[in-house]
């Protein structure tokens, strides 16, 4: 049950586009900064495989310039 958080940096002028694109993905929560071009992403997936797939999808988003992982947790089953 991996839970991870990332800082995502959009390409210039593409912050809204990036927020939309990430919001459309399953298992992803988006917390955009109000006054900077930075987006916090929290992912919550059931398996490592799902997690890897999700990361690939994130990295494929064209408005994303850089994705930096901040923390990763492996949790017990959902309760």
């Amino acid at each position: 049950m991996p839970i991870k958080s990332y800082l995502a940096h959009p390409h210039q002028g593409k912050k809204d586009e990036l927020i939309l694109a990430i919001s459309a993905l399953k298992h992803c929560e988006v917390v955009p900064a109000q006054n900077r071009d930075i987006i916090v992403i929290v992912t919550e997936t059931d398996t490592r495989e799902e997690e890897d797939n999700l990361k690939l999808k994130l990295e494929a988003i064209s408005s994303l310039k850089l994705l930096a992982m901040v923390s990763g947790f492996n949790t017990p089953q959902k309760n």
């Binding site: 839970i3 800082l7 929560e29 917390v31 929290v42 901040v70 923390s71 949790t75 017990p76």
Partner: peptide, 13 residues
Amino acid sequence: RRDFIKKMARLSA
């Protein structure tokens, strides 16, 4: 606990 961890992840970022 899971919500807590999720919150931790969000706050760490």
